[in-house]
Amino acid sequence: MNIIPQIVANSLIAGSIYALIALGFNLVYGATRFVNMVPGALAAIGGYTVFFLFNRLGLNIYFSVIAGVVVAGFFGYLSDRLVFRKLRSHKASNLVSFVASLGIFTMLQALISILFTSQFQSVLSVTENPKTYQILGATFTWVQGLIFITSIAAFVSLALILKKTSFGKAVRAVSDDEEVSKIIGINTNRLISWIFFIGSCLIGLSGIFIGFDIGINPTMGLFIILEGATASIIGGIGNVYGGFLGAFLLGFVENFGILKIPGEWKPAIAFGLLILFLIFKPEGIMNKKK
């Protein structure tokens, strides 16, 4: 039996999740220019909100997902409003912002552990056999199909907004040069808050999808940041198209890589790729050398 189609399917699914993370991550990085750890916790917040509403309270699943996305977006917005905006106005260095984000990330994760225990939880019901589909010899569940479609849709929407709308131009302007943006009348603080909200929504969604596909636990954030940051750096940090590309590249390399290498080396592959890029092409695929 040819396992290539299955590996391709696995790669696409992994890539889709990484893509959502990278999209959110890049959006925020473009505007703020420092490595932000908070998205890791936001993914967990998204996943746990859905778990709480859907599994514990038994609410409708569509409502729970939307609520999860919004809650994650809201926490992201809060982090900017309460912490990062102040740091920006004091012209804090990137290192300081990074450390602050690490603190917030740790705090939020601990909060989740306290509220929900550090046990791994499944989100979707296990009494039903998941509906699976077969295409060209590859099997996947409807959840995985949904993830793939959603991430493509998210990417296309974001790309369109950035390219075609005024809002998109303003976002690109702020990422490019915050001072000039202010001079031409853009309220950069308010815009950045919006960017945080939207980016965090995307990341919250990625956490929810991971919850559906595998499950959630409070420390899932670290994994998310590592994969998301790797995908972003490979594709070109701050570049929305790059992040998307990098995410799928990462998914493919990870899944095809273990054809030859023992399975437990999977995380090492991601890091290996990251290091290769940092050495030879640090600006990533899509960015130009500065």
Partner: peptide, 23 residues
């Protein structure tokens, strides 16, 4: 705005500053 075209550098000035409308 280095990574934007000449035209976009001008267009971005002419945009609506209200975020919702601008989207």
């Amino acid at each position: 705005f280095e990574q934007m075209t000449i035209l976009d550098n001008i267009l971005v000035v002419l945009t609506d500053r209200q975020v919702f409308r601008a989207i």
